[in-house]
Amino acid sequence: MRTNHEIDYRIIGEEMQYVEVELDPQETAIAESGAFMMMDDGIQMETVFGDGSKQQSGGLLGKLMSAGKRVLTGESLFMTAFTNIGQGKRK
């Protein structure tokens, strides 16, 4: 059984692609900041510190550690979380 959210997706385009993610209500996807292109009504965007995974809920220090590590890999400190707060599937 999966513990992570289960998202549906479609990859569109040939050489310049984008991925369209479909969320069930209360599902969340996280993305690298700057990658966002578009979203339906009913999806809420929130900037999160670190990657928002559950393993990181170990207090402020744990969050700082994991975010600091992300800077080393060239990603930004913050990521963006998109949550479907509406009814039904949204893209």
């Binding site: 992570n4 959210h5 969340t28 996807a29 996280i30 990657d51 992300r70």
Partner: peptide
């Protein structure tokens, strides 16, 4: 390389 993921996926080094 990372673009996006479902919530719960951890991105580390």
């Amino acid at each position: 390389a990372f673009l996006c993921a479902a919530k719960g996926v951890s991105i580390g080094i």
